[in-house]
């Protein structure tokens, strides 16, 4: 399952990294505390968060996430978009809550 599949199935909006949607999604991680995400997430995870500030990009790059999904209609800052495009991290947006989108992704990962 790649990022493009999630985008299509969940109606996510792509804010940047549209050319990197072929990345493989091996799992998911939900969380808003960067230190927790740093400690607990795995390479290939798609990260579900409501944090929209630019620090999220560095975490995602370090942990080699397949993409970031911002929940509850949060829009990324200009700096966040800039840094995510530089780093080639797909930045996706949904109006659904973190619980709901994590639930749906989980369902796609464990059919």
């Amino acid at each position: 399952m790649n990022v493009a599949f999630l985008v299509e199935k969940l109606g996510l909006k792509v804010r940047c990294g549209g050319d990197r949607l072929d990345r493989e999604v091996s799992g998911g991680y939900a969380g808003d505390l960067l230190s927790n995400v740093m400690a607990g997430s795995k390479s290939g995870d798609v990260w579900v968060t409501c944090q929209a500030h630019q620090n999220i990009v560095a975490v995602s790059v370090l942990k080699e996430h397949s993409g970031i999904i911002l929940t509850q209609g949060r829009e990324p800052d200009k700096e966040t978009i800039q840094r995510a495009s530089q780093e080639g991290i797909p930045l996706l947006v949904t109006e659904l809550s973190g619980f709901e989108i994590a639930g749906r992704i989980y369902g796609l990962l464990h059919p």
Binding site: D32, L33, L34, S35, C50, Q51, A52, H53, N55, R74, E75
Partner: peptide, 17 residues
């Protein structure tokens, strides 16, 4: 909505969103 001047210490406790 979403604008904050909170530092990382404040954010780490779940505030400053």
């Amino acid at each position: 909505q979403g604008y904050s001047t909170a530092n990382d210490h404040i954010r780490a406790m779940g505030f400053g969103a």
